[in-house]
């Protein structure tokens, strides 16, 4: 009896967070970025001096701040989801919504620093047409920037729904989907950061 109930429990526990469609979307996004990352690395091997010079014009500290901001933002999203999973009472929903706002503030730091970085490069007459390095730099980081913007729109939507108490029925699928998308954006930056700023 105990064995069978354990099997049932383990089957129930093995649940994919969020919607299946979101996970296929995440896989598609990861694939696109994998191609971009590999393309960047191959181009670097074909133009080593150009990429080395290009990387020296970037701010590693700005990249580091952005990494810390995105990781911290992801942490608050995960924390918010945990609060919602433990209880869907109105008070808890508000607490979870507040953590989502904190997560968005950290995402705002990322957007601000990245915008400053672009502005800094534009001031030196460096843009997407300067050379292959900057074409790929603006393309990959710009594409990621747009994903962060989309992620923020999703977080805003989730936080509004949370404050309204829409997740109190216990169906957290929408919340989980949005959170997983945000973690994917974080995961992409974790590969992008060493590739562009560290190596």
């Amino acid at each position: 009896m105990n064995t069978s109930s354990a099997i049932v429990n383990s089957t129930i526990d093995k649940k994919l967070p969020g919607d299946l469609a979101m996970w296929f979307f995440i896989l598609a996004e990861l694939t696109v970025f994998a191609i971009l990352f590999i393309g960047f690395a191959v181009a670097e091997q074909m133009n080593i001096s150009m990429f080395s010079e290009g990387k020296s014009q970037l701010h590693t500290t700005a990249g580091l701040i952005n990494t810390l901001a995105l990781i911290t933002s992801s942490f608050f999203v995960a924390l918010s989801l945990k609060i919602m999973q433990s209880s869907q009472q109105l008070g808890r929903s508000k607490k979870a919504g507040l953590w989502l706002i904190v997560a968005m503030l950290f995402a705002g730091i990322y957007l601000g620093v990245k915008a400053w970085e672009y502005q800094f490069l534009f001031a030196q007459n460096i843009d997407i047409e300067t050379n292959t390095f900057f074409t790929l730099y603006f393309m990959i980081t710009g594409f990621h920037f747009m994903h962060v913007l989309l992620g923020m729109v999703i977080l805003i939507f989730i936080s509004v729904q949370t404050f309204k108490g829409r997740y109190q029925s216990g169906n957290l699928s929408g919340f989980e989907s949005g959170a997983c998308y945000w973690h994917m954006v974080d995961m992409l930056w974790i590969i992008l950061f060493p590739l562009v700023y560290v190596i």
């Binding site: 649940k15 995960a78 973690h183 995961m187």
Partner: peptide
């Protein structure tokens, strides 16, 4: 990546394939 997958995305308790 492993930390984000297992802890933040909670895939440690998801179907193994994913």
């Amino acid at each position: 990546g492993q930390q984000i997958t297992d802890v933040f995305m909670e895939l440690k308790h998801a179907p193994s394939l994913w």
